[in-house]
Nucleic acid binder design. Structure first.
Lengths: 149, 149
DNA sequence: CCTTGCCTTGAAGTCCACATGAAGGTTTAA
DNA sequence: TTAAACCTTCATGTGGACTTCAAGGCAAGG
């Protein structure tokens, strides 16, 4: 498939795909005899993975470091795991911040004060609702003991 | 409190606080007789709200639109709710993308393949794990019937 | 043969959320 | 009184993730 079809399939612009290849976020793409990119499903999956990570807040530089480790021949298992765990922590924090903002907006939507300022009462209420949610989630994940190793 | 103290309290740089005021993301700040900003807790809360929304992926422009509506005297309740819901949808999608990426990384960490490509088996496994999680979450939130109105 | 429509590379431009620098004012402390 | 350590405004610079531009190649249709 040519780059335009790949672009349509992934929702990523042709220029962005070339940029990802240049930045080594995806592997070097095979070429047709005249030099055009010939993109297969393996590349499509990598493009999707890249957009997922980028939209999740990972920088191009960090994503490249991460990918380099995985593509390396040497057995970097320890380093890889460390990097993975580091990135995981960053992303989980980001997700939690996001969830807090979502809770905040949901609170606004449900209680709907006259103006948007966060009052002390509101903060306390948010904390209570958050604590309840966390308690529930913890209970729900207690039977997945080694998921976060 | 002066801008440096406010900066230390919020973790937001002085330059960024001035930028937020200029962009009307926070209200006009009171000045001391010599013209220095005198920041109170109401401003601190607004700064925290702004950083939360920005880090959640809302643009300065959208955040300003949102805040303008809330600061307006007129009763914009409908528009406000619509805007809130719109933003909420964006953030929830972002959170879900983030969660998918986290699941992906957790999978790597637990099963640890030689390289990072997502194979068909891996995708199926991820989907199974995700389906289980969703089922659990749904069960856990079923007793909060009107939270998402 | 020439237009249409795809592609290539490399360089330069854009947008956003600030960061940094210049030039100056005020207060405290030696 | 002069230096340090804050502050102000206004203007310009920066980094990241692309986008757009310029200049050209290849293949098919009329």
């Amino acid at each position: 498939m040519n780059i335009k079809e790949a672009s349509e399939k992934t929702g990523v612009s042709s220029a962005a795909i070339r940029y990802y290849e240049k930045e080594s976020l995806i592997p070097a793409i095979d070429r047709t005899p005249v030099g055009n990119r010939d993109i297969d499903d393996r590349i499509i999956r990598r493009i999707r993975f890249v957009t997922q990570m980028l939209s999740a807040g990972m920088s191009v530089e960090n994503l490249r470091r991460y990918i380099e480790l995985f593509d390396a021949q040497e057995d970097n298992t320890k380093e890889q795991k460390a990097l993975l765990k580091e990135q995981l922590a960053v992303m989980e924090e980001k997700r939690d911040d996001l969830q807090a903002a979502i809770d905040h907006l949901n609170y606004k939507l449900n209680h709907f004060y006259d103006h948007m300022e966060t009052t002390e009462e509101e903060l306390r209420s948010l904390e209570r609702e958050h604590a309840e949610k966390v308690a529930k989630q913890d209970a729900a994940t207690d039977d997945e003991p080694d998921y976060h190793n």
